[in-house]
Nucleic acid binder design. Structure first.
Lengths: 120, 120
DNA sequence: TCTCGATTTCGACAAGTATCAATACCGCAA
DNA sequence: TTGCGGTATTGATACTTGTCGAAATCGAGA
């Protein structure tokens, strides 16, 4: 595993964990959540929750805000926007979006024979 | 690290690697790509590419099709659909519950109805 | 100031993963 | 059949990551 410098990879890795996905889901549902809430929902120890929150922070998924003794977390809109860009950028084949002609042209331009096989 | 049974987590983990993201991007650009192409673009050995292609296969991202001596890969539309469901379900700013894992997986498995409660 | 509760950080361990070299497998052609 | 080229698997190794217990930090209030 080499160091992940690609911010997109970091973003994806940030969400690619069951505990962190649960955290993101709760944040999506409740908006702003106290750190102490996650300990209950995620079935892991409190230091582990803190660790995951740090990963989410460093990958840009969440922001933290301190109020008195508690720290409240909320989702970073920029992360959601980028995530949606990634989703939108993946134009898959099959049903519609990806143009077979374009694909064929690209493959030909790549300098290979590539008889493009269309998935059923 | 426990086994990831959540299909959403598996999907995210499938894409959360620089090599695999590069593969997905090339597949997005070219539609259908011979396995031998990835060895060139990803700067890793052939067994490593094969390993990543297997991970992408098992997480549902790609499908493989054999033509003579070559194996052609293309993106699985269902994976893209579910990825978009996840992106759409993440609503920044809070106040929008989005489908939990089971529901999302079920929706993806059903393959027709759209999921996720969209906030007003 | 000290104490208390919430949170983070540290140290360590276990488990997963990415990578490569070597090897096996699979179609095709001679 | 054998040989060949492309692809997948195996075994080994190093790195990364998730987890917990213990200690440290931080803010508020007595």
């Amino acid at each position: 595993m080499k160091r992940q410098t690609d911010p997109d990879v970091r973003l994806l890795q940030g969400a690619a964990d069951p505990t962190r996905l649960a955290i993101l889901r709760q944040l999506t549902a409740d908006g702003t959540v106290c750190a102490c809430e996650f300990t209950a929902c995620c079935e892991v120890g409190q230091p582990t929750v803190s660790h995951h929150l740090r990963v989410l922070r460093e990958s840009g998924w969440v922001r933290a805000e301190r109020r008195a003794s508690w720290v409240y977390y909320s989702i970073e809109p920029k992360a959601v926007a980028r995530f949606r860009e990634l989703a939108g950028g993946l134009e898959a084949g099959g049903g519609s979006p990806f143009a077979p002609a374009a694909a064929t042209a690209a493959n030909a331009a790549a300098g290979r024979r590539l008889p493009v096989v269309q998935p059923a």
